[in-house]
Design a protein around this nucleic acid. Structure first.
Length: 198
DNA sequence: ATCCCGAGGG
DNA sequence: CCCTCTGGAT
């Protein structure tokens, strides 16, 4: 079910992963992982969450941020999984994106981490690094970043590359105060270690 | 382009 | 205090 290395989100099933990824928008994995145990204890699967009370779900995920829209979205998503997809998570990017709260990035992560389907999800880290290393121009959209990376990286390594970029972005090439002095790819970086931590 | 939102880091 | 976090919908 889970082929191998996935992200740092805690989830026992594809459904829980889907919910966790929706919740992770503009939030840290750590923050999501703090809230999901209680959430999944109360609503372990789509059948349970589809019948959940809105304000109870809001209370459970409040600490994550953006909780009002996220509570509404995950309940509606659970309802759609039950009613339109027979209780199964669709293994298709377009179908996944019909679920509320699921966009291009979330769909890619779920397909890759739950089903091993190759793709490169462009999140804030991947976008930042691609631009600092000038793989794409500063004004590039997330879609352009995704296309560029898929062209440069062989398909068999898309998922691994994605996770490496995330890890690099989260712990080294951070948005604020990146650790340029100890950077392995400093010679390839346009900024050459002088990113003003503005 | 803007809104939604709280927690944690620097 | 201000910035950032595996964005998505309007």
């Amino acid at each position: 079910m889970f082929p191998e290395a996935h992200g740092e989100l805690d989830a026992k099933t594809p459904f829980q992963l889907l919910i966790a990824v929706i919740l992770s928008a503009q939030a840290t994995d750590k923050g999501v992982n703090k809230a999901t145990p209680a959430l999944f204890a109360a609503y372990p699967d789509s059948k349970q969450l589809a019948q959940a009370n809105l304000s109870e779900v809001e209370a459970l995920i409040k600490t994550i941020g953006l909780y009002r829209s996220k509570a509404k979205n995950i309940i509606k998503t659970a309802m759609m999984i039950e009613e339109e997809f027979g209780g199964e998570i669709p293994r298709d990017k377009q179908l996944l994106q019909t679920l509320p709260g699921v966009g291009r990035k979330t769909a890619n992560v779920v397909l890759g981490d739950a089903f091993g389907i190759p793709g490169i999800a462009v999140d804030t880290h991947v976008e930042r690094i691609s631009k600092r290393l000038q793989l794409v121009k500063q004004s590039a959209t997330v879609t352009e970043v995704e296309e560029k990376l898929m062209k440069v990286v062989p398909e068999s390594e898309w998922i691994v590359t994605h996770h490496r970029l995330i890890f690099f972005g989260r712990y080294h090439c951070t948005a604020r105060a990146p650790k340029c002095a100890a950077c392995p790819v400093l010679p390839y970086c346009h900024f050459g270690g002088k990113i003003s931590s503005k």
